[in-house]
Design a protein around this nucleic acid. Structure first.
Lengths: 159, 159
DNA sequence: TAAATAGTTGGTGCAACACAGACGATCCTT
DNA sequence: AAGGATCGTCTGTGTTGCACCAACTATTTA
């Protein structure tokens, strides 16, 4: 009882994450517009680059979006030839979605164009800190949510 | 030319931020619902706690939301007595918005309830790393966007 | 052959906004 | 004291990003 251990457990990043993502997204929209991209396209492309060829429903899972909406998203991207849908030889029902060279290039351009935005939003952080942030985010983002929730099982919510 | 300096400049956190925030928000919604809160309420409360008493339009600025929509948000919060609007003695047009004790308590409860969510989304990160992440996010979030954009002035977009 | 699965299409509905107009209250000028 | 600007409020409109449902085709698997 005397412990009450100086609890840093209230340090929840959720709201901060939300807030920062919003600020970033608001600015990113206008910067991305001339490139014909929207923030969510960027997210998809980023995931695609990280994950290589994936089926659409795998994409739906990692993006945690309804698969019907993935279709439209990919239509956009494919119309711009940033992404390619190919039938999987193993299972011809499947579409293997992959970044095209143009896609990778455009993604890079976009990231480049976003430098200013990041400077603005992450202005309080030193370059090294930003790199740390990036690395933490990247690692957190590239874990499948499924394996996670499976690993969690039941948590007694001991608060 | 030969340099091509191993450029880590492509490490843009925007998309990752977006992605993670989304994953967090999706889960947070259901966890927060029993508490009568929505993610955006959480963000507002968090900002309010960090910033102390602020006018509504200051809030609109930091949340980067239209001030007319702030009204509704605050109405929700005030109806639940999590927030208080008082006339500013200096300028009686202004409302000084402040977290009530109930508000602070509810916020803490919410953060507590979100522990599981964070475990799920940030599962790949060790506790120490999460704390680092939190600290970085906190610092980045508590900088006024205005002073930032003013500091940037004109950037020649040298990419 | 039947049932399950991947993708597509179209439609509905909701919530989060942005934006605009009009208003009262209260500054701040001159 | 009068006029204009500012803060908050209310109302209403439109857009967008989704989730969700239903129906359909092509394909796989049982």
């Amino acid at each position: 009882m005397s412990a009450l251990p100086l609890d840093p457990s209230e340090h929840r990043s959720g709201a901060l994450l939300d807030h920062l993502a919003r600020r970033m997204r608001l600015r990113a929209e206008s910067v991305l517009a001339p490139l014909g991209l929207r923030p969510r396209h960027l997210v998809a492309l980023t995931v695609l680059r990280a994950g290589g060829g994936t089926s659409q429903q795998a994409l739906a899972t990692t993006l945690e979006m309804d698969s019907t909406n993935i279709v439209g998203l990919l239509n956009d991207l494919e119309a711009k030839e940033l992404v390619e849908r190919r039938r999987s030889p193993q299972d011809r029902r499947r579409h293997v979605v992959e970044l095209t060279e143009d896609g990778a290039k455009r993604l890079k351009e976009a990231e480049c164009a976003l430098a200013g935005v990041e400077d603005e939003v992450l202005g309080a952080l030193e370059p090294a800190e930003r790199e740390t942030l990036y690395e933490l985010l990247r690692r957190a983002a590239t874990t499948t949510p499924i394996s996670c929730s499976a690993a969690i099982d039941e948590e007694p919510d001991a608060c």
